[in-house]
Amino acid sequence: MNIPKQPLSHKILKYTLTSAIIFASLWSAAGLEITIARIIDAPRQIGILVGAMFPLDTSQEAFDRIIPKVFESLFIAWAGTVIGAIFSFPISFLAAHNVAAGAVSRITKQILNAIRAFPELILAFVFLPITGLGAFTGTLALGIHSIGTLGKLSSEVIEGIDEGPLEAIKSSGGSKINELIFGVIPQVMPTITSYWLYRFEINLRASAVLGVIGAGGVGQELINQLRFRDFPRAGTVLICTIVLVLVADAISASIRNRIIKGKVAKS
């Protein structure tokens, strides 16, 4: 049979990549002092921890402590997302090069990049001395970071619009403002709204984490229980977090689907 040969350059690329990946992992494993004995022992150790969590702590007192914290994470994530959405919306128009003037767009984009460079956790450090320990700090940190990410995504959506409707409005005598309201916003709103919801899903996970440095939410509860070695209660915290994230994800994903795909025609 006559099978065409793979070109030599492909083969070379394949072997260099494979050996580079193997070499990089070995170098990393050696540097981190990860031995085979530790890898083999890890599943047993993880099993011990998981075993210690069961049976879960289902006392009334545990739920009275945990449930408000779980919901606090939800509120932080939502409020943070709303702050991000409200501020990023006008900013994204300034950052889009087909709406704003070239210089304005470039400067706004750089500002958005600068905001995104700070991880939420670092932002939370900045807000801690201003707003103290608590949920408000986490909200602001998530909100500011969301302005950066949502601003970038939204401006990219605006840059990808169809110019036709804008021309139609212009030719019928519409002003620049008319163009924005009737030409741009209806085109970009579905995608941008779905990005807001998507950001909410990400923020929900991030807000669960922020508690570790005292910025509110369920993270504080988990780290405390693990420090006090109260594993059954830590397990309960974990399960409650998982349930909240699963439910919120499912609702948000179904709304996003509905927004993007439209109403499913009844057959």
């Binding site: 981190l32 002092e33 996970r205």
Partner: peptide
Amino acid sequence: TIPDLFWAMLFTVAVGIGPF
């Protein structure tokens, strides 16, 4: 569903503090 830092907390308890 489990955030990255939660995994890290759980694994530090399970296999000890450190890069592993």
